[in-house]
Amino acid sequence: MFETIGIWIAALLTLCIFSFLYKDNPFYKFAEHLFIGVSAGYWACYYYHNVLQPNLFVPLFQEGRPIFIIPLVLGIMMLLHLVPKISWISRWPLAFIVGTYAGYYLITYLQTNALEQVTATLVPLVTFSSVVLFVGVTTGLVYFFFSKEHKGTFGGIAKFGIWFLMIAFGASFGYTVMARISLLIGRMTFLLKDWLHIIQ
């Protein structure tokens, strides 16, 4: 019974959202506002029960671990951003977060996204793939070298680099289209299967 009501609500809200494809209308606005309101309420409760309570309130107040006073104070300082006169205090916990994450990220990001990638690019030019990789990376880098005017041979190499970039953008866009169609298939399957029972 409750499942059926849930499916009907979900189906009608899906149709309300789809109605935007025709033009903006009150049904779409209603569904949009409802989604934002429900999400905000849901996440507020969720964060309280799954983040604040187990990671701060329980260890501090029930288990009596005084070290947790530090995150409590930092959290309160962060909330002071809402008081215009003393909003500057929120910069301190923010600085703590930025500093911590910069430290966390710096070495590992450099290792994962730069060093490993460069190492994998410097390979012997013995296969077709490695030649394409070498030409693509080199000409792409030439395109992003702006201290010399893109003219003559240098301009030609840079133009070749643009072709590689365009192919990469095309592949990325193709995947994006595929993803959006997948989402549409998901919704259509829900409407035809769970709601209307037309398909198995």
Binding site: Q117, S172, Y175, M178, A179
Partner: peptide
């Protein structure tokens, strides 16, 4: 991953990450 982000992860396949 979703198709939107799949293209971003191909470089990590090449490096065996």
């Amino acid at each position: 991953v979703t198709a939107v982000s799949a293209a971003d992860y191909y470089p990590f396949l090449q490096t065996d990450q």
